[in-house]
Each structure stands twice: as C-alpha cells, then as structure tokens.
C-alpha cells in the first residue's frame, strides 16, 4: 500500500528523514511511532505530496508519488497535524467545501456522504453553529469525518485521538478497526503507545529521521522467556523454584523458564497457591524507549542533541 525506498528529506543542514524504507501492506493497521521531532510529520507530508522528497522514492497503491497524486490522493483520507477548518462556518459547510474543492466528489451524493461521515464520528446531531465554538474533541471528530468523506482505501492519520476523552478514544479505535475490517488500510502516527498497542497490527519506529524498527506487533511483543507468577505464598514459591527466580517484587516473581507449563505444574504439585500466572511479554513501551532517543522537545544544557525538524 505504501512503499518508500531510501526516502530522504533535508531541510538545509537538517536531515529530517533519513533513508527510510517504509512498507505498509494492504489491510495493515500500521502504527507509526517516534519521539517529537523525529520526522514522523515530515514523512506523512511526503506521502501526501505536500512536502517534496530530497531523494528516494515513494509508491502509494502501486503508483509513484507525488507524480501520480491526482489518482492516488482521492483514495486517501488524511488527518495531518490536527484538524483544521474555517472557523466562521459550520461543520457541515466545512465538509461540503472541502469535498467540493477536490475532484471526483460527486455532487449528487455529497449531502448523503457528509451525513454518513458525521454519523460515523458521532457528530450526526451537530447543529449549524460555527466550528470556532466547537470543543477540541468535536474538531477532532470533524477532522476524522473529513478524512472519511470519500470512503478511502487508505487512511493516513496523524494523532487521530488527540483531544478526545477516554470514551472518544474508544469510539475512534472501534471505528478504525471497523473500517479496517471492511478493507481500509490504516496508517496512523501516534505517541500514545497504549493506543497503538490496542489497535495496530504492525509498527514502525522512527528516531532522528531513521526507521529503526518495522515489524509485526505480535513478533515485537513476543515472550521474553520468563514467566510471571503471582502468589500469596511468595517464600514457598521461591523455595520450590529455587535458582530460577530472577526477581521478586512483593507477591510477584519473575521466573526464567523455557516451558511455563512445567513451572506451573511444579508449583501446584508443591501446594503453592497461584493467583496469577502467565508468560512475560515485551511491552511496546520498553521497546520504543530502548530504540529511540529523547525527543527534540527536550533540550538539555550542553546541547548534546540538536533540534530535528
């Protein structure tokens, strides 16, 4: 769906995106992660033909970008760096204008498509008040509605749940998985790791302009080879599993074990009560923190890290 080869963007002396080989497959729910200023937005803008690459290639839906953007972009719904609208106009008018401005937005179906998009994002009952009186969450929903207007094959969403409350976040997550089930590829950037954790099937991590990880989430979160055991009888459990316990924290033990079932059997056989048991998995957070540096919004004395665009 999206393939980039050695994609590079240089702003003067600053290398914002450095030799990125992105590979988003059809049907993916792709989470694009990275600290602030790591090049996420620049990359998204290049995918949409807003920013021109310094070198490298971009292919979206099998067509080179930005050369064929007239064919590709109508099939993409995008939310880039927050929603925007004309504040003095109503939400519906905003959607009508943005739909009419682009090509291939059939006029006959416009009203129906706007109604459907508003319905999907939970704004179906919105009145005619101007967008400048909308709350942050309503604006976010309106931005999502604009992205959904054309029933896109690919959604490119930058921080789609920004400004939403927990219920709103849940709704958007459900909406995105529903659209994905219906065949829409979702490419979203975020630094809300839990959001990506709960929604995405693949992740890419960018740091200082370089793509440092790109993998199935399942693989990344693979078992660590340790088992987590929670027990009211910690001391007895430690005695039973002597030598293989790596760490004890309160009533929780981390046990090195190639075969979790064998550990469980030993504990039960020894009459140790087990309240919780399961293989330990790597968390996305640990992974991301391990492969990325500090974001560009952190500026320490001595300037050991420059500001990346």
């Amino acid at each position: 769906m999206i393939v980039t080869r050695s994609l590079t963007k240089r702003y003067g002396p600053v290398l914002a995106v450095d030799q990125v080989d992105l590979d988003v497959r059809e049907g993916d729910r792709y989470g694009f992660l990275g600290p602030n200023g790591s090049g996420k937005t620049t990359l998204v803008r290049m995918l949409l033909g807003l920013v021109y690459a310094t070198s490298g290639e971009i292919e979206v839906m099998g067509r080179p970008m930005p050369r064929r953007c007239a064919e590709v972009l109508p099939q993409i719904g995008a939310l880039v760096e927050g929603p925007s609208s004309y504040g003095h106009l109503s939400g519906r008018t905003n959607l009508a204008l943005i739909d009419a401005a682009g090509r291939a937005g059939a006029r006959r179906t416009r009203r129906a498509r706007i109604a459907e998009a508003l319905e999907r994002v939970g704004l179906s009952g919105v009145d005619n008040r101007p967008v400048k009186h909308y709350s942050l969450g309503m604006r976010q929903r309106l931005g999502l509605a604009a992205a959904l207007l054309r029933a896109p094959r690919l959604l490119i969403l930058d921080e789609p749940t920004n400004g939403l409350d927990p219920r709103g976040i849940r709704e958007v997550r459900d909406l995105l998985s529903e659209l994905n089930k219906a065949g829409t590829t979702v490419f979203m950037s975020s630094h809300q790791l839990t959001e990506v954790d709960q929604l995405c099937t693949r992740v890419g991590v960018i740091d200082q302009g370089r793509l440092v990880v790109q993998e199935e989430l399942e693989v990344l979160r693979g078992p660590t080879g340790r088992v987590m055991v929670r027990s009211p009888d910690v001391d007895r459990a430690v005695a039973v599993l002597d030598g293989r316990v790596e760490r004890v924290e309160g009533d929780m033990l981390l046990v090195e074990a190639a075969d979790p079932a064998a550990v469980n059997l030993r504990l039960i056989a020894a009459g140790v009560r087990v309240s919780e048991f399961g293989p330990e998995r790597r968390s996305l957070e640990d992974l991301v923190l391990a492969v990325t540096g500090a974001g560009s919004d952190r500026i320490e004395k001595g300037g050991d890290r420059g500001d990346q665009g």
């Binding site: 949409l48 807003l50 880039v80 925007s84 609208s85 401005a101 682009g102 090509r103």
Partner: peptide, 13 residues
Amino acid sequence: AGMLRYLVARPVG
C-alpha cells in the same frame, strides 16, 4: 488556517 495542507491533499492541484 491550516487548510492549505487539506486542500492540496484532497487533492486540489
């Protein structure tokens, strides 16, 4: 107004 990116990505040539 932040609309230029949405217009060009719509796409409006």
